[in-house]
Design a protein around this nucleic acid. Structure first.
Length: 485
RNA sequence: GGCGGCAUAGCCAAGUGGUAAGGCAGCGGUCUGCAAAACCGCCAUUCUCCGGUUCAAAUCCGGAUGCCGCCUCCA
């Protein structure tokens, strides 16, 4: 399969270094707030990557860390009046709640920075010993960026051009503004660990270097994260690790694109910050997941509630067809007829195209297009009276159901029972539209009476009233059924 | 200022040399007493613009315009 490697700026054939065993490390969250839509995208993108690598038959060991000590956590602790540890616990728990709902698989290892302090101290000592880092009188340790010739390779920048932009905090005594902290001396009241340089805490970039090496070994097959982490986080991780080992740190760097809200960067200052919880209060989790995979993972993605509604309708269409296919599969009698050969051939072609899309840099957007191809094919078969009751139709229906199952597993969607999903959709929409179910039922009962009395004018008036409320009524042999639009 | 990305129908969105997937909306139809629910069908001679390469370009090259991201904590 092809994967876009940020290190070289192009798609490259991917295969694990060790036979059949892919090792991935993805930067997780800093646990200082509820997860937003951008965290959801990153989580879903790498969840799909892991699922697909496994679907393809490779063994995958997947590590996703938690940063549980950091400036933002300390600031949040002060704001909430609780300890930094409690802040991290709280938001890690919230992370699991949100991600479980989105169907994100747990990683094989989910290490926390504070569990790996000794390793970080060892790496820092080693870098000092090799001349790549230095301690200051204040008890800070900095990485000597100019001692590592490859610096800037990942993010595509060169040291000379960066000088003006680098910043030096007051009180820092760096040799060079570009240098970054490996170890920070503690300020009063902050969490700290004892170290050869006095009490302090690790710099942010260090944890990923240490934990990835300890849990997976270097070089990693894939190191992932959001595009914004490319610089400085990943550049610095790479510099630390490579300066220490002298070897490649990660073979493939994979970065997901940003989520924007109303075509602007999401930020607290713009007031367009959308958390996963905000969205899941209005939509089923799978709709968000579907929305996130409906565009290629490297492109910017613009979030809006109207896009969510479109995704909801699209997903509804798929579940609707799955429901029809399952019902169809329950038939007891089948004629001997076969389908015209081009019909199963069309399905075979869609199956190939689905795989081709996924093999091409995990193109879920393209793959979904072929899923809809199968939806249409299924519906065409179901609509055709002679196809529908033929053994050829039975086989085609079973094969499409199996495809949906497999495709869904690889992408982390279509896993629910269709009846349940459709019912849940109705409940979600009722609550989103603040519908008064009692009132709806009253109107339905009145319409039922009117229809029985053949007072179609009154029945239609009631339908119009319901419709104005966003309720669609459908008359079936079993009576009235209603859906929320 | 430096680096990078993107511009495809009303909207969203695949497609990296061989003649434009898919979703939403819209339109036509099936079903229905009716039906905005379901299903089927139709819907870009054309891919921001201008040049160039080629038998052939949305896809490659050069230029223009517009939008965005990173360069500072950030998925």
């Amino acid at each position: 399969m092809l994967l876009y490697n940020s290190l070289h700026g192009k798609k490259e054939p991917f295969a694990p270094m060790q036979a059949d065993h892919a090792r991935l490390y993805v930067c997780g969250i800093t646990a200082y707030d509820y997860c937003h839509i951008g965290h959801a995208r990153s989580a879903v993108v790498f969840d799909v990557l892991v699922r697909y690598l496994r679907f393809r038959g490779w063994k995958v060991t997947f590590v996703r860390n938690f940063t549980d000590i950091d400036d933002k956590i300390i600031a949040r602790a002060a704001a909430e009046g609780i300890s930094p540890e409690a802040v991290a616990e709280k938001y890690i728990a919230a992370f699991y709640e949100d991600m479980d709902r989105l169907g994100i698989l747990r990683a094989d290892f989910e290490p926390r920075a504070t569990e790996h302090i000794p390793g970080m101290i060892r790496l820092t000592e080693s870098l000092i010993a090799k001349g790549h880092a230095y301690a200051t009188d204040q008890g800070d340790v900095y990485f000597r960026v100019r001692s590592f010739p490859g610096y800037g390779r990942l993010s595509g920048r060169n040291i000379e051009e960066m000088r003006s932009g680098a910043r030096v905090e007051p009180g820092e005594s760096k040799e060079d503004p570009l240098d970054f902290a490996l170890w920070k001396s503690t300020k009063p009241g902050e969490p700290s660990w004892s170290s050869p340089w006095g009490p302090g805490r690790p710099g942010w970039h260090l944890e990923c270097s240490v934990m990835s090496e300890e849990l997976l070994g270097l070089p990693l097959d894939i190191h992932g994260g959001g595009q914004d982490l490319t610089f400085p986080h990943h550049e610095n991780e790479m510099a630390q690790s490579m300066a220490d080992t002298g070897e490649e740190f990660a073979r493939f760097w994979v970065h997901n694109g940003f989520v924007q809200v109303n075509a602007e960067k999401m930020s607290k200052s713009l007031g367009n910050f959308v958390t996963i919880r905000d969205i899941l209060a209005k939509f089923q989790p799978e709709v968000l997941r579907f929305f996130l995979i409906s565009k290629h993972y490297r492109s910017p993605l613009d979030f809006s509630y109207s896009s969510m509604e479109e995704s909801e309708k699209a997903l509804h269409r798929i579940y609707q067809t799955i429901a029809l296919l399952e019902e169809h599969a329950g038939r007891s009698k089948w004629s001997d007829a076969e389908l015209p050969p081009e019909v199963p051939a069309e399905l075979a072609s869609l199956e190939n195209e689905w795989t081709r899309s996924m093999e091409d840099d995990v193109n879920t957007a393209g793959a979904l297009g072929h899923v809809f191809g199968a939806v249409r094919l299924a519906n065409r078969m179901l609509e055709n009276k002679s196809w529908q009751k033929s053994s050829g139709g039975r086989d085609l229906g079973a094969r499409i159901l199996r495809d949906f199952q497999q495709w869904g597993q690889a992408m982390g969607v279509f896993q629910d029972k269709p009846g349940q999903w459709l019912e849940q959709l109705k409940l979600t929409r009722i609550s989103r539209n603040n519908l008064d179910v009692g009132q709806v039922e009253q109107l339905l009962a009145a319409r039922q009476d009117a229809r029985q009395a053949k007072d179609f004018q009154q029945a239609d008036a009631l339908r119009a009233e319901l419709s104005a409320m966003g309720v669609a009524v459908r008359d079936t042999p079993d009576g009235q059924r209603w859906d929320v639009l």
